[in-house]
Amino acid sequence: MPRYFFDIHDGHFQRDEDGTECADFEAARREAMIVLPDIARWVIPTDGDRQTYTVIIRDEGGVPVYTATLTFTGLRLNDTEG
């Protein structure tokens, strides 16, 4: 099975040095879709109410073949404390 590398950018860049074996490109793409919400669940925005989470998939040769991004945006609807 081919090995794909899932680099993560969530305000900090984390390069995947180990990779994951996936049956094919579509399986790797599905994995990216699964991992993004999991990342967002654990990486809380620290600079306000906006955070972008990106996965860049590289093939065995290190060539980027897919990218997916999930954006969190929060907006306070009133300005009173309470």
Rank of each mutant, 00 (worst) to 15 (best):
residue 4 Y to M: 00
residue 17 E to G: 04
residue 66 Y to C: 02
residue 4 Y to V: 01
residue 24 D to F: 11
residue 75 L to T: 13
residue 9 H to G: 02
residue 71 T to S: 13
residue 3 R to V: 13
residue 79 D to V: 07
residue 31 E to A: 15
residue 80 T to P: 00
residue 46 T to N: 07
residue 36 L to K: 05
residue 14 Q to H: 10
residue 21 E to S: 10
residue 51 Q to V: 08
residue 15 R to L: 10
residue 39 I to Y: 08
residue 37 P to S: 01
residue 73 T to Q: 01
residue 71 T to G: 09
residue 69 T to F: 05
residue 72 F to V: 03
residue 40 A to D: 09
residue 61 G to E: 15
residue 66 Y to E: 02
residue 34 I to A: 05
residue 66 Y to V: 06
residue 38 D to F: 12
residue 17 E to I: 08
residue 17 E to Q: 14
residue 76 R to I: 11
residue 21 E to N: 13
residue 78 N to M: 14
residue 76 R to G: 11
residue 20 T to S: 10
residue 73 T to Y: 03
residue 41 R to N: 13
residue 72 F to Q: 04
residue 66 Y to S: 02
residue 47 D to Q: 15
residue 8 I to R: 15
residue 1 M to W: 15
residue 75 L to M: 12
residue 82 G to Q: 14
residue 30 R to N: 08
residue 27 A to Y: 01
residue 51 Q to A: 12
residue 26 E to D: 15
residue 12 H to M: 05
residue 57 I to P: 00
residue 53 Y to V: 02
residue 23 A to L: 09
residue 11 G to A: 11
residue 3 R to A: 07
residue 64 P to Y: 00
residue 17 E to R: 13
residue 55 V to D: 09
residue 25 F to V: 03
residue 79 D to Y: 04
residue 13 F to D: 03
residue 67 T to R: 07
residue 43 V to P: 04
residue 79 D to T: 02
residue 67 T to F: 06
residue 9 H to C: 06
residue 24 D to I: 07
residue 23 A to V: 12
residue 19 G to H: 01
residue 60 E to M: 11
residue 15 R to K: 14
residue 8 I to Y: 10
residue 57 I to Y: 08
residue 74 G to L: 08
residue 47 D to Y: 08
residue 30 R to Y: 11
residue 58 R to D: 00
residue 72 F to R: 10
residue 55 V to G: 08
residue 5 F to G: 09
residue 81 E to M: 03
